[in-house]
Simulated scan of single mutants.
Amino acid sequence: MPTRWVVVAKLQARRSKVRPGSRDEQIIERAIDLALSDRRTQQDPDYLYKNVLRNATYAHDRSGRRACASLLRYCGDVDICLADNSIDVVATGTVEEDAEATELHQHLTNVAAGLGNHGVTFLEHLMTGRRPTEAGLAVGISKATAYRTWATLKKHAVAWTQQAG
């Protein structure tokens, strides 16, 4: 049996053990696509298996960082991305735009400070592209608390952009 099919069978067996729709399933699906690529020429099934899983994880995380489920445009070239996985404020030009992005960041920091000891650190983890669960784990809070904190921050960011715009 060709190496790629051995790896695909292993990945499909692993996929059957994970929760449907989960991050792991999405990564395994992508790994199967990578394993089926004609450009993959590895002969060792173990190496190919580890390689496609590593590449699939990287590609999945990269696309998560790039894709904002909801992108609000604020004042020209300042993008405020409010997605399931992060908050990002990107100023791409003038001093005024930088000042507006800084003002939003300061507003969110003030809101986060009122959310408990974890608030500001949690916000900083979100702004580096981590998902709420990852940020919550990093600051030592439960998944439920992480999502409540995320929802509060998102609500304040949306309100701020609507008020400022």
Score class of each variant (00 low, 15 high):
R23K: 13
D38S: 07
D44L: 13
D46M: 05
P45I: 01
N55D: 15
R4E: 11
R30M: 13
V7K: 09
V6P: 01
N51E: 08
P20L: 10
D24Y: 08
P20T: 14
K10R: 15
K17F: 07
N51T: 13
L34S: 04
V52M: 13
Q26Y: 04
Q43F: 03
W5I: 01
R40K: 07
R15K: 13
K50S: 14
G21K: 08
R4M: 08
I32A: 02
L53V: 04
D24F: 10
D24N: 13
D24L: 10
S37I: 03
A35M: 10
L53R: 10
Q43G: 12
I32F: 01
R39I: 11
R14V: 02
P45V: 02
R30H: 14
K10I: 06
V52H: 11
D44I: 08
I27R: 08
Q26D: 04
E25F: 03
I27F: 02
Q12P: 00
I32L: 00
R15D: 08
D33T: 13
K17V: 14
R23E: 14
R30A: 12
S16W: 15
Q42T: 06
V8P: 05
Q43R: 15
V8D: 00
R39P: 01
S16H: 14
D44A: 11
D38G: 07
R14K: 12
S37R: 15
V8W: 00
L53E: 07
R14Q: 14
L34G: 05
A31N: 05
P45Y: 05
V18A: 09
D24S: 12
V8A: 03
I32H: 01
